[in-house]
Every structure is written in structure tokens, then in C-alpha cells.
């Protein structure tokens, strides 16, 4: 294959394009990282040159290539306690505010989507039990959804590799997991505490029943959606949340590229988005 190179101007164009789309801005020090991945995809798509490939990214109706490239540009791995600062924000700021504003005795409801194999929903459950003393007085429901029934089966089963639990404090591992050969089995009490359901976020008839949530975790999913699907998803979350409810996105995702329906809130541990309290 002929040598493909990314010129400085190519890099500038791509950088601006990707920034517009995602809000992620690569600085000059990322040049090698970006070039390498671009070249990899130019070859894989047999585009032959940056110019052709850039055209493909911009005009392809299915958006598939942009998705693939985004995946390469953002490391996406799921494991226990990933991006823990958001869970800190949950127990230190978000839940206390929700409790303070709550006017009924209904449980606090948290929606985790995509569920993937369950690491995030279980991490939230553990975080609440370990770091939020109010859990003894307030009921919390955690519902975790995914479009993929196979992965939901894995989530319900709750068997994880050593790598997947490596970031978690050992104490939690001992308390909530049991060793099974090379792997770790999450305890029944937690398996029983999280509800896993199948949902296609893009289908209104699937999401219609999802209402009355106080917090939505939707991390590292919308970044792969095209502009309109992303906006539609944000609107779905708007209706899924109670007024004053919060939405947490992944660290490389910005609501600024999706929807203006939510309000930015700064807490000590994280910046999150909130459905306005006066929303109807």
C-alpha cells in the first residue's frame, strides 16, 4: 500500500471537524495519536488519501465510519469504578440535593443505560452502600437497560474477570464478590438489587414507560450516535427524569453537542446536567 500521510492542514481540518461533532479538542501533543488512527482507518476503508476519507466521514449517511473512528479516538472500556469521580459526585452532591427537594416518600430511582455487562450499575450500588449513609433511611431503585439481550444475560449473571474489578478497593471485592476460578462472582444481594431490562433508546415505544427517574447515567454511548439520534436521546432522558433530576455523561462526552434542554451544574467532584426544577 502506498504511503499515506496526514499533513498539518489535514490534521487542522480533522481537529476542527471532530471538535464540532464531539466537543473533544485534540491539542498538538496528540498529533501522533490522531494521525496513527486516521491512517489506520484510511487504509481499512481503502480511501487512499486523507481527502477521500475526510469526505467519507462528512457525507456518509449511515455515520458508521465516524462511529468506528470515534471508538478508536476515545478509549472505551468498561470496568468497575470507572470514572469514579462521578460516583463521588452522586453521593456527595446529587443524592443529597435530591433528598432535600423530594416531596414524597417514593424511592429514589436511578437509570443506568447502556447496561453493558453490568459493571456500572453494580458499581453504583456498591458506592451507595459504602459511601452514602443515608441509604439506610431512603429506598433506592437501580434500573439498568441495554438493547442487547445477550449482554443483559451476562449482567444478570454478574461474573467478572480480574481485570474488570482491578480498579475497585480490595475491601469491596472481598465484601461483595466471591472468587470463582480466575473470575469474580458478584453476590446475590447485589444481583437482586439491580433490575436489568431491554430497551432500545431510539424507540419511543420502548422508552415510554421509563419515567420518574432522579438520576440517569448514560456514559460513553451518545458519543457514537449521529447528531439527530443524540438529540432525540437527550429528549427521551428529559422526559424520563423528574424535574430537578440529573444526567451524567461520560468524561469525553459533552451535552453541549446534544441538547440545550438541561442546565449545567458544577459540583466539587464533577460538572453534571440537570433538568430544570421548574420543568413541566
Amino acid at each position: 500500500m502506498a504511503d499515506i500521510s496526514i499533513s498539518e492542514q489535514d490534521f487542522e481540518k480533522f481537529r476542527e471537524f471532530f471538535y464540532r461533532k464531539s466537543g473533544i479538542q485534540f491539542d498538538d501533543s496528540k498529533r501522533y495519536f490522531v494521525d496513527k488512527r486516521l491512517i489506520e482507518r484510511i487504509e481499512a476503508t481503502q480511501s487512499g488519501s486523507f481527502r477521500n476519507y475526510f469526505m467519507l466521514l462528512r457525507v456518509q449517511a449511515s455515520n458508521a465510519e465516524l462511529q468506528t473512528l470515534t471508538n478508536l479516538m476515545t478509549v472505551n472500556e468498561t470496568y468497575f469504578f470507572r470514572e469514579e469521580y462521578q460516583f463521588d459526585s452522586l453521593v456527595n452532591s446529587i443524592l443529597p440535593e435530591i433528598v432535600r427537594l423530594k416531596q414524597d416518600q417514593k424511592p429514589i430511582r436511578i437509570w443506568v443505560i447502556p447496561s453493558s455487562s453490568g459493571e456500572e450499575a453494580y458499581s453504583i450500588a456498591i458506592k451507595l452502600l459504602e459511601c452514602w449513609p443515608a441509604i439506610n433511611e431512603v429506598d433506592v431503585e437501580i434500573i439498568s437497560s441495554d438493547i442487547d439481550t445477550h449482554i443483559l444475560g451476562q449482567a444478570r449473571q454478574g461474573l467478572y474477570s480480574a481485570r474488570s474489578v482491578a480498579q475497585m478497593p480490595t475491601r469491596y471485592l472481598q465484601q461483595y464478590f466471591r472468587r470463582v476460578g480466575q473470575n469474580w462472582q458478584i453476590c446475590d444481594a447485589l444481583r437482586d438489587a439491580v433490575e436489568f431490562t431491554r430497551v432500545n433508546l431510539s424507540d419511543p415505544s420502548d422508552t415510554r414507560a421509563y419515567r420518574g427517574f432522579d438520576v440517569v447515567f448514560c456514559r460513553n454511548l451518545l458519543i457514537y450516535f449521529d447528531d439527530i439520534s443524540r438529540k432525540a436521546a437527550a429528549e427521551t432522558f428529559y422526559d424520563a427524569l423528574n424535574p430537578g433530576g440529573f444526567i451524567c455523561l461520560g468524561h469525553s462526552e459533552s451535552m453541549s453537542r446534544m441538547s440545550s434542554l438541561f442546565r449545567v451544574r458544577k459540583f466539587p467532584d464533577a460538572i453534571v446536567y440537570q433538568k430544570p426544577l421548574e420543568a413541566r
Partner: peptide, 14 residues
């Protein structure tokens, strides 16, 4: 720099 008002708010709050 910020691309729009929302990104600007995120940056201003940080």
C-alpha cells in the same frame, strides 16, 4: 475557545 453557549458555560464554571 468555546463552540457554543453550553460549552462556554461548562468552561466558565470550571
Amino acid at each position: 475557545e468555546a463552540f457554543n453557549g453550553l460549552e462556554a458555560l461548562e468552561k466558565a464554571l470550571q
